[in-house]
Nucleic acid binder design. Sequence first.
RNA 1: GGUUCCGUAGCUCAAUGGAUAGAGCAUCUGCCUUCGAAGCAGAGGGUUGCAGGUUCGAGUCCUGCCGGGACCGCCA
Length: 587
Amino acid sequence: MSLLEELSGIVGAAFAAEGFPSELGTVQPSDRPDLAQFQCNGALTAAKQAKANPRAVAEKIAARLKANPVFSKVEIAGPGFINLDLSDESLVERMRTLAADERLGAPRKGEGKTAVLDFGGANVAKPMHVGHLRSAIIGDTLQRLFRANGWNVVSDVHLGDWGLQMGQLISEIGRRGIAPIYFDPHYQGEYPAQSPVTMDDLEELYPAASAACKADPKRLEEARAATAELQAGRAGYRVLWQHFVNVSEAGLTREYGSLGVRFDLWNGEASVECLIGPMIQDLKARGLATESEGALVIPVAEPADKKEMPPLILVKSDGAVLYGTTDLATIIDRVRTSGPDLILYVVDQRQHTHFEQVFRAARKAGYSGKAQLEHAGFGTMNGPDGKPFKTRAGGVMKLYDLIAMATEEADKRLVEAGLATEYPEDERNDIARKVGIAALRFADLSSHRVSDYVFDLARFTRFEGRTGPYLQYAAVRMRSILNKAEEAGLESALKVAPSTPEERTLILQLLALPNAMAGAEHNRAPNILCDYVFSLAQIFSRFYTAHHIMSEQNRALQLTRLALVAATLGVLSKVLAILGIEVPARM
RNA sequence: GGUUCCGUAGCUCAAUGGAUAGAGCAUCUGCCUUCGAAGCAGAGGGUUGCAGGUUCGAGUCCUGCCGGGACCGCCA
């Protein structure tokens, strides 16, 4: 139980004893730290409901709370706020509990529950670009957070491998005559085991095919036909397609890995191919899917809709299926194999309507089981001009190049600061890489999920201010103190209660970890964790400046403060790990 | 045109219906012969796009308007 839950329970009991709903006892950190540590606003609501004087209600509640030794102060302020301070003894007791808990008080919100997280969404045969960055980073952080909160998580990269881009690529290869054997409809023998194209080839072929289809409707028609044939099972196309998938996966694994992103499943749209036919039969048989303008659709509009809700298209008039079809079949697959309580899609906000359609269709057909279906959308990463990020040449920047840029920039900053200059080259490169990734990840995660943000590498890689590198530095500094103490033979221990404002503020922030983790989960909002951890680092810096530990003469005080440093490092490391930020041993 | 998200300090961004709207950057003033100054202490900077409404209380909820992004049946 978190501190806030504990306090809310105590205050809630006081409300209940006065005949009010106990929910009114909700306690929150004070908006006015100069006045109190915590506050409860329930007396205002209670007074409204009972048509009573709010201060009078607050007085009754406060009278009951004053009897509880956990509080050192119970005051009524303003229109009826109840302000609370904890006794120093209560604070240190709760710190001891936290320090002894290997989970550091992480909430158990997800125990016994399973969540499928769908993020990544890279496309086979297309290079990963900056557009894939946010899904990967936000999704990965949510999977780490959900696991930390006790959820059983199944993450799925859900590759884009069954749509029109496959037909575009196949027809491009056919036109160029690169591998004619796959296009011979009469060929009966074995196909080569070796892929006719490399990843580099694909990176050149796809943009060319895409541009050609855009420019020429007939060319697009060809791509559509190839897509439909692939899906219909044309042998040569299938084998060729498998080559694309194999070649791509190796590259994608490396790119996601360089960001620290891992997936449990490398499924794709095509993984549910065998479910699509039966699903369509089922939907037709039950009258849920109907013909419309030559296509097969599921109407998902509802009478209460304010907005126009187009039907979900299952099968195009040319016989090919779309990603809405595979998304729907994927729900069936996930419900069968994982039995999830939640399926969370971390995908671009622009696809919100699409997911609304798919979710409605799934519920209508009864495919979603007990799973709550939810789209956690996010905004775009923009360039300095406020438009989606492009390279200087105006093209789409590859993720690989972006990471290289960040690492290079981080290295430049290390040189400027004269840091790590005398370290072995391997270690130095490793530090630059960790700092670069930290800069990228923290910048992306700290802006609110649904809003767009401006990409500014120089700002992200700074060591000052609200950045990933600053947090790494803070952690390294804490470790440095602990190392010094260890060399001096000091063993940290929470011997005495806090006695200074810096100590109390630090303890309160440490005890607030479960609330940050629960809040971030509830809102699917990593920026809550970023706020929390940056604030923790700042509070620690004040503590560190105010109290010089190694020269402290009072041994009990010294060991207690060392224990606070150790606890802070523990909490900081835990949150950074959730954010996917690695802390170097030294910098 | 319809729907939807957004509009907060010079810039980049926060703020479960609560008290005096907060951080970082930038600007200015102090603090390194003591644990890593990538830091700390302090200052200036705001009619929360505009106008109404609900509420004891609104950046937050409702209505209208202004401005921007996104989406609106066979792309993903």
